[in-house]
Amino acid sequence: MTDYALDALKRKRAEMTGEIALCHARLQQLSTDLEHLDATLRLFAPDFVQESVLPKVFVPPKSWSKRGEMSRAVLSILRVAKGPLSTREIAAMIVDQRGLENDAGILNIMTRRVGHVLRDKRQAGLVRSVEETGLWLQWEIVR
């Protein structure tokens, strides 16, 4: 194995062990905070059973995007479009690209998100609205 590969692997291992140590420290802090919270709850309600409160886990829906992902998707669709596209058409293409189920709820959510991206990009001068057809504006890239 080359020295470069060995050094890179050692560096990656050091990063991973450091991240694990941070996670352990965070877990220890959370455990301590939970013990303090339970003790405070027992002061106010001596008969309180901790197990009666179920953990609350936040799971984002599949329709969520990471930072900048929606903007990139909208702009890439407009770049390859042969003409102006409506907000709803762009949203439908994004739903198809992501493999989401194509129902009215997801399409409405995506249409709102696409509209927000397009308004931001219009203020930045990257896209423009051409005309309105029904409820939806037609959008194109500024060339």
Results as ranks from 00 to 15, higher is better:
F44A: 11
P61C: 00
S52F: 09
S31T: 15
P61L: 03
R26F: 08
P60T: 01
P46S: 02
F58S: 04
F58M: 05
S52N: 05
L41C: 14
T40H: 13
S31N: 14
R26K: 07
H24P: 01
P60K: 01
F44R: 07
Q29M: 10
S31H: 12
S31Y: 13
T32P: 08
F48P: 02
H24Y: 13
R67A: 00
V49L: 08
F44T: 08
W64Y: 01
P55C: 00
L54K: 12
K56E: 09
A39D: 15
A25V: 04
W64C: 02
L30F: 07
D38I: 15
H24V: 07
W64T: 03
L34F: 13
P46I: 02
V49S: 05
Q50N: 07
D47H: 08
S63L: 05
A25Y: 00
S63A: 03
V49P: 03
S65K: 05
V53N: 08
L41M: 15
E51W: 11
E51M: 11
S63F: 02
F58Q: 00
L41A: 14
D47Y: 02
V57M: 01
K56S: 09
S52Q: 13
L27N: 06
D38W: 13
D33T: 09
A45E: 09
S52T: 09
S65M: 05
L37N: 11
A39K: 15
F58H: 06
